[in-house]
Design a protein around this nucleic acid. Sequence first.
DNA 1: TGGGACACGTGATCC
DNA 2: TGGATCACGTGTCCC
Lengths: 238, 238
Amino acid sequence: MLSFTSGVILPSSGTAKSTVAADSDHSDIEASFVREVDSSRVVEPEKKPRKRGRKPANGREEPLNHVEAERQRREKLNQRFYALRAVVPNVSKMDKASLLGDAISYIKELRLKLQSTESEKDELQKQVESLRDQRPPPDNQDLKSSNSSSTNSSQIEMEIEVKIIGWDAMIRIQCSKRNHPAARLMAALKELDLDVHHASVSVVNELMIQQATVKMGSRFYTQEQLRLALSNKVGDFR
Amino acid sequence: MLSFTSGVILPSSGTAKSTVAADSDHSDIEASFVREVDSSRVVEPEKKPRKRGRKPANGREEPLNHVEAERQRREKLNQRFYALRAVVPNVSKMDKASLLGDAISYIKELRLKLQSTESEKDELQKQVESLRDQRPPPDNQDLKSSNSSSTNSSQIEMEIEVKIIGWDAMIRIQCSKRNHPAARLMAALKELDLDVHHASVSVVNELMIQQATVKMGSRFYTQEQLRLALSNKVGDFR
DNA sequence: TGGGACACGTGATCC
DNA sequence: TGGATCACGTGTCCC
């Protein structure tokens, strides 16, 4: 098996450059015969620092390496071609050039499709958002994001105002509407044994404003005590 | 000018198949000599109708065509390679094999991305549809609520009124001011994932009147479902 | 018989 | 120098 070829090349002489020029002329070679190209191949001996002297000492150990390397390169390339065939649809048979062409248009097609799909997605996203006002559903726990100063562990940024008049207290809290601050305030009032006389809750955009008037029950709080207690209980996420 | 090569190939004998087989063995060839490969090349001697006799009447008019054709083929292929480089990102320089490899992974990447984008789109589509469907007074299902028997263990006397308009609900509760009903209502609203838009609490004598407007979060409740749930949660003394 | 497609060996060129 | 990559001409196979 294996064809063995015994290519004998001539020094090739001069420029060689890609001059597609009609190479004609080399009318050598016979059937299965070869010709040694005797060294007398002349051809412009100057110019182009060619290898000079013997370069084509052909059948030696070097060319073998070269040939083998080239073989591997070719094999690798063909492997890639094969792999490419596998990922491009509707490509079976066809020659390499067409395969490449198909791969190119396939890529373009994919990109186009992805682009349009993405914009459709964005469109839908906007629709969804507009449909549901701006609902931050159950974004419960975690998210203790930033609390700016206040030097407390898991606190939420919040404004609290407390005014005490006798046994009554007026409370105003302003904070993000997230995580049910109203529930936290009411629970706090319960824990502190403050009876609610009146309360109102309003939401403006992301902000919730709570206002309440309460009457102290079993014990008395100073303004600062109450403010701190509420700050801890309402501001605490957990 | 131009190198002329005189590749001389041997009939290659047998199958020729890609058997990379170590061709070794042919340690022949001398410097610029060639050898004809005598027919005694072992390897199955039959098979493969070779050209017989002279085929490579080389330097004739035929080869010119052949050479030219091959040239064009090569050029076309390289053109495609060039075009491929243009559509695959981050590929400049690199050899052909790597280019093909990159093109392949790029295609896979595009496909993957398109797939995920498409499924996200579908997801959003479903969301939009469900939002659209449920926006209008969804007096659809339910019916399974059934209540009648209000006989519950530790309930408080209480009036509850619920009105649902799309994803919003209006709630009015009237009950004794004792045991912090406001805290219970807010906790209930939190548990039911109802976002408070507005709420007010007023106390008249021993009676507390709570009024709230909420927006449903993750799930939809019918009027009766909501009324029952609130009744249980707020009315339960524990 | 002729043209298309491919693989091969080889020369050249670049780090 | 040597390894890696390319373009080329050629042999071969297949319609």
